[in-house]
Design a protein around this nucleic acid. Structure first.
Lengths: 220, 220
DNA sequence: AGAAAGTGAATGATCGTTCATTCTTCTCCG
DNA sequence: CGGAGAAGAATGAACGATCATTCACTTTCT
């Protein structure tokens, strides 16, 4: 072909768009490097190679490595929030959680990454900037959980006091975050065990409209 | 070359004790460095300084840095198992979990460290040796959880099939591991919320003898 | 004296970051 | 139009710092 690959980088793109695309390319490369090696062990050279550019170029788009880590963390925080939103709007909560667990296992880039989630939490105990970012994210996330509980209660015709809402939101978050740990440490868990655990746990936390969740028979 | 002593001398016992003490000193220093900086970011020089010895001396007792990381992980695995055992034998499970949560928050060296726990899990997705160590630990730990469930069921006069036991053990482990995440990310959670969450969750997982756990009134 | 314990400077590798340089794209005046 | 030249994009070698690890050497113990 005579013409160069125009479809990759159309000249019609404005500078800002191009810069945004480059930033995104770097972040995508950084994310896979961070997953594969960790925040500290992943080198700028690896990230640059994974992004298909020179190491120096990265510094045109990010001040330093720390800024990239922060950007990845912000990205993950939004993924987490999207995951929770997808749970909240699911018509079949149990199978939605099972699907999410699958996405976590597979490192599906369209969902939160559980390895990054764990590393972010660990790193937040060391880096004040990361801690602040996660504190802010938790403020929002906690509110999302509580709104979820409140809405579910209202739909079921119940009325929870604030403490009841906070209690159930906390329990729900614990269980779900425990699932992300399991997605890393026990990805091959029997799906039936996962499903039955959810059917055992969820009805006692979330008030369901009668048809939203099947009742679970206790086997003796 | 020349004939050597085959029998164990009393002085060699003292040497072994000394060596064991030095190994322990190094591991203690390494643990606090790993908590403070992470496995990769903590340097051998920092560990040596924290242990009050020269960097070179560490290599008399450990082959390399990776061997120290592995030893710390094995140590943590035993702490986790001890924590679970302490739950299993507690007469008041809820307040025992609350106490454990407190120990996790404070980074009490006599309990599992939640930051190390998260970092171990994250690192296991990258390092095959760590993954093997954690797989083996999970084999044991899962058995402990299942034995706990089974015993509690028997004491309550119930009879669970294997799948029921696995289901409840999985749910219990999820919730407790979720608590360790919370201990890092939300250490200042209202204690009453924690307690009420436990009273909401636990009775549906663990069959309690009538007097082991108080019934929880649902506030409306 | 001899062996074990301990030191800390030296080593080579690798890291994040910089910068002089080259390549590409865009602008604008003839 | 068109080409000269400014501006932006991209490179990769180079730099100083730091890392894990080694080893010739000193100190301590028996």
């Amino acid at each position: 072909m005579i013409g160069e690959d125009r479809n990759v980088e159309p000249s019609s793109l404005r500078q800002q768009d191009r810069a945004a695309m480059q930033r995104n390319r770097i972040l995508g490369a950084a994310q896979s490097c961070f997953i594969e090696c960790g925040f500290h062990a992943a080198s700028m050279a690896e990230i640059a190679a994974s992004a298909g550019m020179s190491a120096g170029l990265i510094y045109r788009y990010f001040e330093n490595k720390n800024a990239i880590i922060l950007a990845i963390i912000e990205r993950q925080n939004e993924e987490v929030r999207a995951d929770i939103a997808s749970l909240r709007s699911a018509c079949d909560l149990v199978s939605r959680i099972v699907d999410l667990f699958e996405s976590w296992k597979r490192h599906d880039p369209r969902a939160m990454n559980p390895v990054l989630f764990l590393e972010m939490a660990a790193e937040s105990s060391r880096d004040a900037q990361i801690a602040r970012a996660l504190d802010e994210a938790q403020r929002v996330r906690g509110g999302d959980f509580e709104a979820w509980i409140r809405q579910a209660a209202a739909q079921a015709g119940w009325d929870f006091c604030d403490e009841e809402v906070r209690t159930r939101a906390f329990a729900l978050q614990c269980f779900i975050e425990g699932l992300t740990v399991r997605a890393v440490r026990e990805p091959d868990v029997d799906e039936e065990v996962l499903i039955q655990s959810l059917k055992l746990f969820l009805p006692h936390i979330l008030p369901f409209p009668a048809n939203r969740i099947p009742h679970r028979k206790v086997k003796s």
